[in-house]
C-alpha cells in the first residue's frame, strides 16, 4: 500500500511539473492536489512502519516547487501578442483593397448627413 501511494504520488508530481511549464500551467493545480494527498498517505504509512524513504520528501519538494512556479506564472506573467506587425500589415492591405472595392459600389445615395 505504501509503495502504491508512493508510485501514485510520483506520477502526480511528474504531471504537476509538466503542466507547470506548459502554457496551461493553471491546470497543474489538479495533479498537485493529488500528489500532496498521495505523498501524505505514503508518509503516514511509512511513519507507521518506522521507515520514511527519501523519495517521499523529494516528491513533496518537487510538487511544492511546481506549485510555486504555477503561482508565479498566474500572478506575474501577462499575456503578450507576438508578431503584431504581421497583423497590422494584413489589416492595412485589407483596408486598401476594401476601399478599392467600395469605390466600385454605388454609394452616391448614402445619406451621411
Amino acid at each position: 500500500m505504501k509503495q502504491l501511494f508512493t508510485i501514485l504520488a510520483m506520477t502526480a508530481a511528474i504531471f504537476t511539473v509538466v503542466f507547470s511549464v506548459l502554457p496551461f500551467s493553471n491546470l497543474a493545480i489538479f495533479p498537485a492536489i493529488a500528489s500532496i494527498f498521495f505523498t501524505s498517505m505514503a508518509y503516514y504509512l511509512s511513519k507507521k512502519t518506522g521507515e520514511v524513504k527519501k523519495i517521499i520528501p523529494f516528491i513533496f519538494f518537487l510538487t511544492i516547487m511546481s506549485l510555486a512556479l504555477t503561482a508565479y506564472k498566474a500572478l506575474f506573467t501577462t499575456g503578450e501578442v507576438a508578431n503584431e506587425q504581421v497583423l497590422k500589415e494584413k489589416e492595412a492591405v485589407s483596408k486598401e483593397k476594401a476601399i478599392e472595392e467600395l469605390e466600385e459600389l454605388d454609394l452616391d445615395d448614402i445619406n451621411l448627413d
Binding site: 499575456g79 503578450e80 501578442v81 503584431e84 497583423l87 489589416e91 483596408k95 476594401a98 476601399i99 467600395l102 469605390e103 454609394l107 452616391d108 448614402i110 451621411l112
Partner: peptide, 18 residues
C-alpha cells in the same frame, strides 16, 4: 474609410492568441 464618394466607418475586430 474614405472613398471618393463617401466616408464610411470601418468596424474592425481582431482576435490573436497570446
Amino acid at each position: 474609410a474614405k472613398t471618393s464618394k463617401a466616408t464610411l466607418l470601418r468596424l474592425k475586430c481582431t482576435a490573436t492568441t497570446y
